[in-house]
């Protein structure tokens, strides 16, 4: 197992804290958006863009770059924050989220925003699109890898399982999926809306290598990804146990902030907690 020094992990954590702050600022200024699901996947995004992925913000079209697809497109604020922090565009531009003429659409748009690899928003599409990229990489004998974040609500979608079958059928060991298992979807707890468990068994039955981790722990995210890279002949899914709204006390585990912007008072408290 690779060892990471404490300083490196602390640095990633502080980038993630800032990404959380930007996400809340953007949603507050836009007056709408999805804070809960943005905050639950921030740590995975930061690990990907600041450590795991091979990419170059100055050359978003670099043909050998690793590809990322945010299947749960409503977490766009977190992705935009991390893209800006990485240098794909200025942090100042984050203020334009959801506004007329902005490159930062309410949900990711690949033709408008540098660094966005696939337009998403309608749920359940991203894994299949990632599979297409993985097939292309294999055809072209390229070594780049495909990373996809899916939400647990997307486990309701039939296409998710069609794509799960395709990835294992074509032995796509160049794709790694992070399942943001925050256990809440718009209408309530996932197990109440549509029973998903036993999720790990389901993915195993579909031919996937399955790893379960704490999705807010940088070391675990990185170690699991390294393990995935070593798996040959089958795709890997990392079930990341997360907390919806992670990092802002009153948003944690709250259904209320699935798709609602904080008001002024809530915003100020969030900034205080995130050190903004």
């Amino acid at each position: 197992m690779e060892v990471y020094d404490g300083e490196f992990i602390t640095e990633l954590e502080s980038i993630a804290k800032k990404a959380r702050m930007y996400s809340i600022q953007m949603i507050y200024e836009a007056g709408s958006g999805h804070p809960g699901g943005s905050l639950s996947c921030v740590d995975i995004l930061v690990a990907l863009y600041f450590h795991i992925m091979k990419h170059d913000p100055k050359r978003p079209d670099w043909s050998d770059r690793d590809r990322f697809v945010l299947s749960k497109g409503h977490a766009a604020p977190a992705l935009y924050a991390v893209l800006a922090q990485s240098g794909y565009f200025e942090v100042d531009e984050l203020r334009s989220l959801r506004k007329m003429g902005s490159r930062l659409q309410g949900h990711p748009c690949m033709t408008k925003t540098p660094g966005i690899e696939m337009s998403t928003g309608s749920l359940g599409h991203g894994l299949a699109a990632g599979n297409g990229m993985a097939l292309a990489a294999k055809l072209d004998r390229k070594l780049y890898r495909i990373y996809v974040i899916v939400g647990d609500g997307e486990m309701d979608v039939g296409e998710t399982w069609e794509a799960a079958m395709l990835a294992s059928h074509y032995k796509l060991d160049n794709i790694t999926v992070y399942l943001d298992r925050n256990k809440l979807q718009l209408d309530g707890p996932t197990e109440k809306i549509m029973s998903l468990e036993p999720l790990a068994d389901k993915w195993k039955a579909f031919g996937w290598h399955v790893i379960e981790i704490n999705g807010h722990n940088m070391k675990e995210i990185i170690h699991a990804t390294n393990e995935a890279k070593g798996v040959k002949g089958k795709p890997t899914i990392i079930i990341c146990h997360t907390i919806k709204g992670k990092g802002v006390s009153y948003m944690e585990g709250s259904l209320h902030f699935h798709g609602k912007a904080p008001d002024k008072q809530e915003y100020e408290q969030a900034m205080k907690e995130l050190g903004g």
Partner: peptide, 12 residues
Amino acid sequence: NMMDTAAGLAAS
């Protein structure tokens, strides 16, 4: 699934 897989291939 086929249409989205096509999208990933075309994006590549």
